[in-house]
């Protein structure tokens, strides 16, 4: 029983990363209809950003948590303005190629500089364990879960309780119509893209103290995250977050009970969901 619960908790922690990354992909896709294939690379840049900030500027984890997502948000907005925006009027395939290319360039640049070895991160904010009643659990992992849940809830409140949120949801559902109601949707596209990228950067910083920081970390993770997004429903913010945590737990339990399936279970689930509900669990069929 304890090992079951402990494994479930492990699943929630990996789900924390899936949820943050899927959330960013979902808001970006919703507003821009662009699948950001650079998302995994931006997560990787977030982790490297924390390492570099610690090693060369002596700035610790809390600084990284603040500065790295902010810097990546700016970089993301520049990327949207200068590159992505020029292609949005064309076939979506062009932005697919663009963002995929950006991911490869980022990955190879870091591989050139750091090789493919993992970089140590010596600025973990706390060590030790906390007593969760039935078992002790690493304190940092509990912190990661708490941050992820808090961020997801905050984004949810932002989307449902504020004027900006209403505009973003309206533009996501009916982009063209929203312009006919006097809203300059283009004004919101760049900040939303930057925000989604910042979430990837945040996930990267959170990963630095507990995961191997290397040039492949984003590519490895993002494939699962795309499966998460498809299962939750492309563009569904709620679905992405729920599916993120659910799939984290599914993988962890798979590890425990059916180790052979632990890697494939996500794709099996994705295939089943696509057969039964092509738009994903919480997705809506595209409006014409």
């Amino acid at each position: 029983m304890t090992s079951f619960l402990q494994q479930l908790f492990n699943g929630l922690v990996s789900g924390s990363f899936y949820a943050l990354l899927a959330l960013g992909l979902a808001v970006i896709f919703g507003m821009l209809r662009v699948v950001n294939f650079a998302h995994g690379a931006l997560y990787m840049l977030g982790a490297f950003g924390a390492v570099v900030l610690g090693d060369s500027a002596g700035l610790g984890f809390w600084w990284a948590l603040l500065l790295v997502p902010a810097a990546l948000a700016v970089a993301g907005m520049a990327m949207e303005r200068l590159l992505v925006q020029r292609l949005t009027a064309l076939d979506p395939l062009y932005n697919f190629l663009l963002t995929f290319g950006i991911a490869l360039v980022c990955q190879d640049l870091l591989r050139m500089k750091y090789g493919s070895h993992s970089q140590p991160y010596d600025h973990a904010p706390f060590s030790g364990t906390v007593d969760l009643g039935l078992f002790d659990y690493p304190a940092y992992q509990v912190f990661v879960l708490a941050v992820s849940v808090a961020v997801c809830v905050a984004v949810w409140l932002l989307l449902t309780r504020t004027r900006i949120g209403t505009v973003v949801r309206a533009s996501t559902e009916r982009p063209e119509l929203t312009r006919a109601f006097g809203i300059d949707t283009r004004r919101w596209v760049t900040p939303v893209f930057g925000f989604g990228v910042a979430l990837a950067g945040l996930a990267g910083v959170l990963a630095a103290p507990m995961r191997a920081v290397n040039s492949d970390m984003g590519a490895d993770l993002i494939i699962t995250v795309f499966a998460v997004v498809v299962i939750g429903g492309l563009g569904s913010v709620f679905g992405s977050v729920i599916a993120g945590f659910a799939i984290g737990m599914l993988q962890a339990l798979g590890n425990l009970y059916v180790p052979v399936l632990s890697q494939t279970s996500v794709y099996l689930l994705m295939a089943v969901v696509l057969l039964v509900r092509p738009a994903g669990l919480f997705g809506k069929e595209e409006h014409a």
Partner: peptide
Amino acid sequence: GLSVEENLTLP
């Protein structure tokens, strides 16, 4: 996906 009131006050 928007409430009636959100629909009304969007423009």
